[in-house]
Structures are given as C-alpha cells and as structure tokens.
Amino acid sequence: MQRVNMIMAESPGLITICLLGYLLSAECTVFLDHENANKILNRPKRYNSGKLEEFVQGNLERECMEEKCSFEEAREVFENTERTTEFWKQYVDGDQCESNPCLNGGSCKDDINSYECWCPFGFEGKNCELDVTCNIKNGRCEQFCKNSADNKVVCSCTEGYRLAENQKSCEPAVPFPCGRVSVSQTSKLTRAETVFPDVDYVNSTEAETILDNITQSTQSFNDFTRVVGGEDAKPGQFPWQVVLNGKVDAFCGGSIVNEKWIVTAAHCVETGVKITVVAGEHNIEETEHTEQKRNVIRIIPHHNYNAAINKYNHDIALLELDEPLVLNSYVTPICIADKEYTNIFLKFGSGYVSGWGRVFHKGRSALVLQYLRVPLVDRATCLRSTKFTIYNNMFCAGFHEGGRDSCQGDSGGPHVTEVEGTSFLTGIISWGEECAMKGKYGIYTKVSRYVNWIKEKTKLT
C-alpha cells in the first residue's frame, strides 16, 4: 500500500490518463441519441435557420407576430419608411378606419389613436360632414345658397324668414311668412316636400332668348283662358290664391305678392273693366268669414305684352289694390325667389296649380277651390304637342294621358313649387288646347323671366 501511494504521488498524470480511459469505455446513459432527441424537440425550422439574422431580410411573422416588435424591426421587413409607417399605425392600436367614419364618399386613412378623412370636392370637416359648395344638395341650405369668396357655403332665406341657429334652416321672422300653410287642420295635408338634388348652379339658368321682337298675326285659340281631375282644397291650404270678379264672377285667378299687390295673367284683364279681388276665398257660393274683398285701382301688364300681336306672350300683369290686405292664416303671400332659384325650383319637376275653373272641358265651374299636382314636361315634348308657338318664356306641365289639367277660369292662378315646406311661385296658368285632352298640356308663363320686374313694381313704400 505504501508503494502504491508513492507511485500516485510521483505520477499524477498517469492516474488522470487511467481515469479518462475508464470513462470513455463506459456506456453513456444520461444523453439520448440524435434521433430520439429530435422526437422530443420537434420544432419547425425557421426561415433563416442556421444563418445569422443580421444578414437576412426581415420576416413579418418572425419579427412582429411571434413577439412584439419595434418600429426598427418592422422597418427591416418593409425596407421602406412609408410602408412601415402605414403598417405601424394599425399594428400599434388597430384600424381606426374600420367603422368607416368618413361621410359623403370620403376616404379614410388610419393613424395612431386617430384617423384622417380625405374629402371629395365640396366637403370638409373631420368626417367630411361639412358642405362647402352650393353645387351639392344646395349646400344643405333649406332655401338659398351662395358661395363666399373663400368658396364656403353661405345660406340665406327669402323675405319674412331668418336663418336658424344651425345656419342652414329657415324659420319665420314674421307672423305670416310667405308660402307657408298655417291653418292647423290643413298642415297635415301639406304636399310632399321637395329635397334639393345635386345641381350645376353655374349652368342652372337656361341660355334662352326671349323672342321679344317676333311679330306674329293673332292666333285663334280655343278655350285658351284655361282644375280638371283635381281635388277639393281645404280652407287655408292655398292662402296665396285669390279669385278675380268682373263682368262675371271667378273669371280668373291670381296670387298675393304682398298686402297691396296681386300677380295674374295679362290676358285676364281689360282696361276700363272694374275688377274686384277676393282673398281668403274657399267656396265661392258661401260666406265663410275668411274672405277679404278689395278693388283694383291700377293694372300693370308687362311692358312687352301686346294682345294685338299675341294674347299669351309675356302673359303676366300686376294688380294694385285700393287697401292693403290683412295677412292671416287664410290670406298669405306666395314666396318669389330670384331668377336663378325660381328656375331651379321649376326644374324640380312638379308643381301645384289651383283655381275655381271648370271641372271638365266646357263644363261647370268649381264651387270649392280645386288643386292638382302636375309634372313638368320637357321642352321637346311640349313643342311636338301643339302647332302653336311655345315661346321661351312659357313652359308645359300636365299629363300625356289627359284627364287632369287646369281649365277655363283658372287662368292667372299660381303654379307653385314647394321647397322644404315653403311654396314659391314658378308659373302662372296661361293657356292650353281644350282641357285635359290626351297628348295636350297646360301652358304656363315662366315666372323666372319676370321676377325682377315683379319685385321692382310691387315694392311697398
């Protein structure tokens, strides 16, 4: 034993070699072989497995989906700052455009905790909710729209109204504003409101030439003092309507412009014939205590009207009353817009006519005020429907199939267009061939041609 100890002390290297040989010859039971080890760690190889990531292109799944990435790591994937920024906006807080917040056709661009709407022409605001041009839906104005110097929408209202708090709607500024039905039992019968379409306001006024200088022999019209197929109006439903009495009662109609003036057809009036105007009328054979009678003290036909040349060209006249009318729910003026808007309103496509005229061709006159909704007829169809001249200051309205029309005794009465609950004068009943005849239409004086003249002559002093 002493000898062994001496050998170990003198030859430590020998001992180490012996131990190493023993270990190498022993069977290893701690580690699995290569094949079995792979069965336990069965993990798919990654895209760049075996390579240094710093030297390969980034992978979106590896960089940002398996674990949260930084902007720089995302930049490695896209290799483009702009594309990385677009991805980053949604990656950080989701897609803010998912709810489609942009209105009126706006395009949404996502941002971090926010979004941006790219608005089409005519709109602005956070969600493109603000109209900035009158060309689109009248700028959301209830009545009139004008573009300011910086191309912003400025709404306005006709006389007797003021802008509401929203700067879009119009509200009454006087007790009985024009064009409004205020009798409670008839307010439910107000005709369907007309909503502004998209309009090209630059070209809204037709490029028409008034044929002022045409000389033409007097034409022989049949029954051209021209509501057939209409309905009984309720008291106060058309408070701007008046009836004219002269040699015979209810020979023509008219509309209240203001307390002192009536507008009617020029062919209705004769110099030297006494005319009485009755406002607030409903049943011409009954006294309903809503009527107001006034005498006409002055007749002003349009300066281009000449019955000797043509009885229905420039067929418009103004009547001055001896005493002002007292405005109330049964006696209310009709609204008159400017030339541009009167023309736009007419193009809405349908209007209402009213009167006490004959209820059928050569038949009896109506006792109760009649009204009828009539569609506008395109000019080409209008011209083809008659052998008589249709001037540019006239328009056609009615039904091709016949059966409904204005008729004798309705002449001078109103053709009105309702705009968001307020009625505007767009025409004056003038003439036609018979009444409600198939293929024939009622012919009306186009008020847009005469609004400046009306307003100039009827100013209240």
Results as ranks from 00 to 15, higher is better:
residue 422 T to N: 04
residue 177 P to C: 03
residue 27 E to W: 04
residue 264 T to F: 02
residue 222 N to A: 15
residue 241 Q to K: 05
residue 388 F to E: 11
residue 260 K to C: 04
residue 273 V to F: 09
residue 169 S to E: 09
residue 95 D to R: 12
residue 425 L to R: 00
residue 262 I to M: 02
residue 67 E to T: 02
residue 396 C to I: 02
residue 289 H to A: 07
residue 166 N to W: 02
residue 109 K to V: 11
residue 164 A to R: 09
residue 319 L to S: 01
residue 243 V to P: 01
residue 126 K to S: 12
residue 314 H to T: 02
residue 359 V to Q: 15
residue 119 C to R: 02
residue 416 V to Q: 06
residue 124 E to L: 09
residue 65 M to D: 03
residue 31 F to A: 06
residue 319 L to I: 07
residue 172 P to C: 03
residue 312 Y to R: 09
residue 80 N to A: 05
residue 190 T to R: 09
residue 53 E to K: 00
residue 50 G to V: 04
residue 263 V to P: 00
residue 438 K to E: 15
residue 50 G to P: 02
residue 309 I to A: 12
residue 97 C to K: 03
residue 333 P to L: 00
residue 65 M to K: 08
residue 172 P to N: 06
residue 277 V to H: 01
residue 156 S to E: 11
residue 24 L to S: 07
residue 79 E to W: 05
residue 297 I to A: 08
residue 359 V to P: 06
residue 363 G to R: 07
residue 411 S to R: 15
residue 35 E to S: 13
residue 254 G to R: 01
residue 368 V to W: 04
residue 142 E to Q: 14
residue 412 G to K: 03
residue 373 R to L: 06
residue 5 N to G: 13
residue 177 P to D: 01
residue 75 R to L: 13
residue 172 P to S: 07
residue 148 S to L: 12
residue 242 V to S: 01
residue 197 P to H: 14
residue 177 P to R: 01
residue 343 N to L: 04
residue 275 I to M: 08
residue 325 L to V: 03
residue 404 R to I: 14
residue 368 V to C: 05
residue 367 L to R: 14
residue 160 G to P: 01
residue 62 R to S: 04
residue 30 V to N: 14
residue 215 T to A: 08
residue 181 V to M: 12
residue 176 F to V: 08
residue 241 Q to F: 15
residue 421 G to D: 06
residue 217 S to M: 13
residue 184 S to K: 12
residue 323 E to S: 12
residue 272 G to H: 11
residue 53 E to C: 00
residue 191 R to Y: 08
residue 293 K to F: 12
residue 135 N to Y: 08
residue 94 G to M: 13
residue 51 K to V: 11
residue 433 E to K: 07
residue 169 S to N: 11
residue 238 F to M: 11
residue 443 I to D: 01
residue 90 Q to T: 09
residue 15 I to S: 05
residue 345 F to Q: 02
residue 52 L to S: 08
residue 426 T to P: 00
residue 423 S to Q: 07
residue 193 E to Y: 15
residue 147 N to L: 13
residue 300 I to D: 02
residue 55 F to L: 15
residue 105 G to P: 03
residue 217 S to Q: 12
residue 435 C to Q: 04
residue 371 Y to V: 15
residue 254 G to Q: 00
residue 22 Y to D: 02
residue 241 Q to T: 15
residue 331 V to K: 00
residue 394 M to Q: 13
residue 255 S to Q: 03
residue 68 K to M: 06
residue 231 E to D: 10
residue 48 N to D: 03
residue 204 S to H: 11
residue 46 R to S: 02
residue 352 Y to G: 04
residue 363 G to T: 11
residue 42 N to A: 10
residue 308 A to S: 15
residue 398 G to P: 04
residue 50 G to I: 04
residue 213 N to A: 07
residue 435 C to S: 04
residue 154 V to K: 12
residue 403 G to S: 15
residue 284 I to Y: 08
residue 168 K to Q: 12
residue 187 S to C: 06
residue 384 R to G: 10
residue 393 N to T: 11
residue 78 F to S: 03
residue 50 G to F: 05
residue 343 N to R: 07
residue 344 I to E: 13
residue 240 W to L: 00
residue 271 T to S: 11
residue 283 N to E: 07
residue 333 P to S: 05
residue 269 V to T: 07
residue 263 V to C: 03
residue 126 K to N: 14
residue 83 R to N: 12
residue 70 S to T: 13
residue 210 I to N: 06
residue 399 F to M: 09
residue 38 N to D: 15
residue 175 P to K: 11
residue 264 T to A: 06
residue 8 M to D: 12
residue 165 E to V: 12
residue 430 S to M: 10
residue 163 L to N: 03
residue 358 R to H: 14
residue 302 H to M: 02
residue 332 T to N: 04
residue 226 R to M: 12
residue 260 K to Q: 06
residue 391 Y to N: 15
residue 329 S to A: 10
residue 253 G to C: 11
residue 33 D to G: 12
residue 271 T to A: 10
residue 368 V to L: 09
residue 188 K to P: 15
residue 216 Q to S: 13
residue 380 A to Y: 12
residue 373 R to Q: 14
residue 389 T to P: 15
residue 114 S to L: 11
residue 311 K to I: 07
